[in-house]
Design a protein around this nucleic acid. Sequence first.
DNA 1: AAGGTGCCCAACCGCGTGTTT
DNA 2: CAAACACGCGGTTGGGCACCT
Length: 358
Amino acid sequence: MRRSAEFDDMSGLKKGPWTPEEDQKLVDYIHKYGHENWRALPKLAGLNRCGKSCRLRWTNYLRPDIKRGKFSEDEEKLIVKLHSLLGNKWSAIATRLPGRTDNEIKNYWNTHLRKKLLQMGIDPVTHRPRTDHINLFNALIGNLPPQLLAAFTSSFINTNTSSINPQFDMNNTLTNSLFSDTTQLIHQIQLLQNSSLLVNSLIRNATATTSPLNIEALNQILGSHNQLQEYNSTFQQFLSNSSDSLIDFGLKSSNVNAEFTHANNFSGKLDYQEINDTKLGGDQLILSGTCSTSSSVIGNDQMKNISKMPNENTSDIYPKQELIMQPSSASTSTFEAWDQIMGNEEASDSYWRDISNH
DNA sequence: AAGGTGCCCAACCGCGTGTTT
DNA sequence: CAAACACGCGGTTGGGCACCT
């Protein structure tokens, strides 16, 4: 039973799912007499239903030309395109998909396609890249010290295997939230090739890194410093706001050159101070910190192998990162993004203009 | 194995619009 | 012209079922 109340209290008419006998009565009647008057039909067909229920059953289920089964990729693509042009005009969309009902398309949209777009970082209403989570990410990463940024980026991905580095503890909530869908992350990055700086930095850091930073260590870092705790809090907020989707990457500027060449079982903490020194060219970060493995404190010699990792007793000065998350909408439309993911050919412009004019 | 949880989708509901009286 | 009727559309519901713990 799909509906609890089997009969309408007021009218006494039956509600809920249709039995095979009822279906047969309806089909037989319509084959014989058609369906000119839905209101009168149920009585004439011997059905204890309202006309509306009969019409719905016929149009959404019993009609002989209804196509059943999974939506093809072409159909998915068509629905997305039509939705971007027509919005939630399901009946209008359905007229372009032979054998599919508006109800079926609406359900498919709400249960599958909507989520798919969200995972692609596309707003299913506007069909433009999502921006809600980007602001939060900006807040997080905009002032992130280079070491931490490098820690994030170099730990993201193994470009040789096109997968998330297995060193990540996937049971870690934070990691799990961020990398819940590897394929999705890779798609995201592939889609946003214009943001080549980030991709390049991902590749550079990933390939240069034999042992990426342990995420637990990263959490330790984030949790051990007041100011970093703010980042952490923002980051958590960011994660909670982007559960359906990862990040629409866009990156400006360079200087992502801090490399963790050897950070196996890294743990420790970073201290940094933000200053504005005109001699040094404006905003600067003064970084200092300690670094140790799980078994022993890293000595100064080993410390030198960690490129640009500040020595315990020294302070290094780095230019402040100019990392700005931005929507990649400039060149990647929904259609293009979809096509890239689906690997399909783009239909002609005139075709879509034609549809949108209807 | 049993109970809990979340997803899916058939069917319902309310409302807007067009047609008839 | 207004009221009643009929239809169709889009949003929402909730039972079944698969999956998870």
